[in-house]
Design a protein around this nucleic acid. Structure first.
Lengths: 167, 167
DNA sequence: CGGTTTGTTCAAACAAATTTGAACAATAAT
DNA sequence: ATTATTGTTCAAATTTGTTTGAACAAACCG
């Protein structure tokens, strides 16, 4: 049976909706699922902490999505749990400092890739030594060296980046 | 009818394969399709420029994929056309300077998002003025201001980033 | 010309990522 | 103890993104 809704409960109002969309776009840039953007976005404009059911109701997405989304956002240090003595539920607050958000993203999403790239490049360099033709070997070595230079430059840049986002 | 293959033609050898995989991973980090990584990766370890059919044969992917992939890579300035007087086909060479690659990616994939975000944040700021409750209005304005600060910081960072990748 | 080569386009097929929802565990309330 | 509440898990369903391949256009060749 459909029930009446007041203007603030079940349907996102226009501003909330626009804000959430901006974050969905932001998530897309970062290669994160839309639900992550929705959840963080709603939290970002909420004047009070929110619990799982609030996201389900106001975003109209499943409990499962919200649970997984919050887990990922916790991993990214983009949300924090807030304890509330009076309530069994876990409430969440957004982290809103760009530096911290960038730090979490770099740690969780960027560094692991670079770490695995390091290994794979080393493997490749070894294999390249076994090549017979000196011409080919030289060329390949130069290319592998090039990628590794990229990797090093970029890795060194990450902390600088985070620092520059500090203010 | 299956035909015999020599060891350099149809099947990627082990090193080529490993190198291509590294680039497929790289593409994933950047949110680009695997085929883009394959194409650029193969080109990166090729001592000579390659034409469309070379990619089709050596990567075993369709002509359509290669055509679209090369178009995107051209847009990103990650590959360059090389003219060859003796041949009708268009050959490609990779751009291998990190600075240039980063520049292309920023221009094509990052800036457009920021540009559209700018508009959407402005719209949002206008809408926020129409809110009646002064408390809510104040809070929302602060949040919108916060996002816009993020946007400005990040936008200002892009050229610096590119510069720092210069060596 | 008519045939061949080269490359593009785009709807359909396919693959991968995301979301759902029902089953479940854990804890609290009665 | 029994029921209600809160949150998790994960296989299946759905959605989204990627690749394919056949049809086509353009340029060249004999």
């Amino acid at each position: 049976m459909p029930r009446l809704q007041n203007s603030n409960s079940n349907k996102l109002d226009s501003i909330e909706h626009q804000m959430v969309n901006i974050f969905v776009d932001g998530a897309r840039i970062l290669g994160l699922p839309p639900s992550i953007g929705e959840i963080y976005g709603l939290l970002f404009i909420s004047p009070t902490p929110l619990a799982l059911d609030d996201f389900v109701e106001r975003l109209g997405i499943s409990k499962g999505s919200v649970s997984q989304g919050l887990r990922m956002l916790k991993g990214l240090r983009a949300v924090r749990e807030v304890e509330s003595a009076s309530d069994r539920r876990t409430y969440y607050e957004p982290a809103i400092e760009l530096k911290r958000l960038a730090g979490g993203f770099i740690r969780e999403q960027v560094r692991p890739h670079f770490k695995s790239a390091e290994t794979r490049i080393r493997d490749l360099a070894e294999k390249a030594q076994e090549i017979d033709d000196p011409e080919s070997r030289k060329f390949l070595r130069a290319r592998i060296e090039r990628i590794d230079t990229w990797r090093r430059s970029t890795t060194k840049l990450l902390p600088i980046l985070q620092k520059l986002l500090g203010q």
